[in-house]
Design a protein around this nucleic acid. Structure first.
Length: 480
RNA sequence: CGGGGAGUGGCUCAGCCUGGUAGAGCACCUGGUUCGGGACCAGGGGGUCGGAGGUUCAAAUCCUCUCUCCCCGACCA
């Protein structure tokens, strides 16, 4: 039974997404500021959970956090040719301040390669200073034509890592380490979302990068969402900003830099990958609240007994479960069941007078909404049971998303099969085409090459578009 | 930015065509009865109709401009 106010996915996927965002109370439109949203507490809590999981991994891989200015002298942006071209159309400019026109306008950072490059040039002197491994948590602004809450907003929150290395090999190691050990690891383990790791084609790579890698996930409508990118910037920015070091042979060298980021778009990915027509579904490991307890009572005497039972049963939960007791009296239990389902809390525990008599509690799992996922279990060993249930749900969500992706991934050996496949999901096919061929495919099918997966078959094949001999498989899809 | 749709109490919408003192349901507040899958009754509060200008004796309604949101397309984390 779909919730009131939620458009079923089958009817209108885009509207369903917006309904979830609104009804689960994640965000509000900042209608007075074009394309921006307010992260409401429930939505921001998801971002905090994401931040925490990523920040741990970023630090575990040797990086430190720092913070650079929001405003960037416009001239900085102009220094790297490809970068300017890529970002110029979407930057906002500050032209006036203090009641006067500024001699040189600032741009509001769309990304911080340039301003950070300026400082790195000052900080890096010797090979002993490298690698320089810094991350910043920040907001950025890109004046996009069309916005959607979380997926693409004018202002968004993200982390951007910026590192400096002695040579290409070290920069490349960094770029891939982030992709594997930080991004893919986090998204798959914490968000229960399987990803495809791969390299971007020139058409899709970051403006100013030598090579861009990305992780791509499939949403429930079969479209792809890029959820993280990691770029080997080569010496492009080092040359533009003169980031040099003296090597062991006393030679001055241009350094090699990388940058990598994930954003609040991950919240969008979370919604579109796991949620259902009943509302949001949050994987247990990420969930700000993992277990909600709904006490059930009629009389004051029952209320006292039930709440006592609740505190007795939950006495040993602190530290091992993130939980909340919903003892509001103005709402009926049924109302609360629906509300917590809508908000995506992974597990609900019900305790009423009948349970007290029988020594049981009701336990409902969010990944199986409604009564299907509800059962009554003994009070004994409840904490362990809940812990293992949370683990089970985490795995079930991953498995479900993985299975969905497999079922919506098609092998194509010719263009017709590619065209048909991208209507429904991902298409894998050999690729030996050009940039122009890619443009044409996008024009004709709406799909792009999401990545050339790092994981490649040993055998060669025939290009799905040109028919020429091809070494590599590409994944094609329509993307957000 | 191109094509389409929409802005009216917190939410969903009616009223607009054919100008004449703003409505409904839900939500909210108070009281009572309820409470194991979105309870019920009674009473009550709340909107100068996205904004600006114009036409008119009179504008939610007609005209012009503008802002915002949604959908499709091109651009992007």
């Amino acid at each position: 039974m779909p919730k009131e106010g939620i458009t079923p996915r089958s009817q209108d996927y885009a509207q369903w997404y917006l309904d979830i965002v609104r009804d689960a109370d994640l965000a509000d439109y900042a209608e007075v500021v074009r394309g921006c949203i307010v992260f409401k507490p429930t939505g921001f809590a998801l971002w905090e959970a994401i931040q925490s999981g990523l920040d741990q991994r970023i630090k575990a891989t040797g990086h430190q956090n720092a913070y650079f200015p929001l405003l960037i002298p416009k001239s900085f942006l102009m220094k790297e040719a490809e970068h300017v071209e890529g970002f110029a159309p979407e930057v906002a400019e500050v032209t006036h301040a203090g009641g006067e026109k500024l001699a040189e306008p600032y741009v509001i950072r769309p990304t911080s390669e340039t301003i950070i490059g300026y400082f790195y040039a000052k900080w890096v002197r010797s090979w002993r200073d490298l690698p320089l491994l810094i991350n910043q948590w920040a907001n950025v602004m890109r004046w996009e034509m069309r916005t959607r809450p979380f997926l693409r907003t004018t202002e968004f929150l993200w982390q951007e890592g910026h590192t400096v290395h002695v040579d290409e090999a070290d920069a490349e190691r960094e770029t891939l380490k982030i992709l594997h050990e930080v991004y893919a690891d986090f998204v798959e383990k914490e968000m229960a979302l399987p990803v495809i790791k791969g390299i971007k084609t020139d058409k899709e790579k970051f403006a100013g990068a030598l090579r861009s890698y990305a992780i791509e996930a499939m949403m429930q409508d079969g479209r792809a969402l890029q959820v993280g990118t990691s770029h080997n910037l080569g010496q492009n920015f080092a040359k533009a900003f003169d980031i040099t070091y003296t090597d062991q042979n006393n030679q001055v060298q241009h350094a090699w830099t990388t940058s990598w980021g994930v954003s609040t778009r991950l919240i969008g990915a979370l919604i579109m990958a796991h949620s259902d027509d009943e509302g949001l579904v949050v994987p247990p490991r990420l969930a700000p609240t993992q277990v909600v307890v709904v006490p059930i009572f009629k009389t004051d005497a029952e209320r006292t007994r039930v709440l006592e039972a609740v505190s007795r049963l939950s006495a040993d939960w602190k530290g091992s479960l993130r939980f909340k007791v919903d003892d509001r009296e103005q709402y009926s239990p049924g109302y609360k069941f629906n509300e917590w389902e809508l908000k995506g809390v992974p597990v609900r525990v019900e305790i009423g007078p009948k349970d007290i008599e029988k020594g049981t509690v009701g336990v409902a799992r969010r990944d199986q909404p409604g009564k299907q996922g509800k059962s009554f279990v003994p009070q004994d060993g409840l904490r362990q049971r809940l812990e293992s249930l949370l683990t089970e749900i985490q795995q079930a969500l991953y498995d479900r998303a993985f299975r969905f992706r497999e079922e919506h991934t098609y092998e194509a050996s010719n263009y017709d099969e590619l065209k048909q496949g991208v209507e429904k999901g991902f298409v894998r096919g050999y690729w030996a085409g050009t940039r122009e061929d890619e443009d044409k495919i996008q024009d004709e099918t709406g799909a792009t090459i999401r990545v050339l997966p790092l994981d490649q078959p040993a055998t060669a094949g025939k290009c799905v578009y040109t028919g020429k001999p091809a070494q590599k498989i590409a994944v094609f899809a329509r993307a957000y």
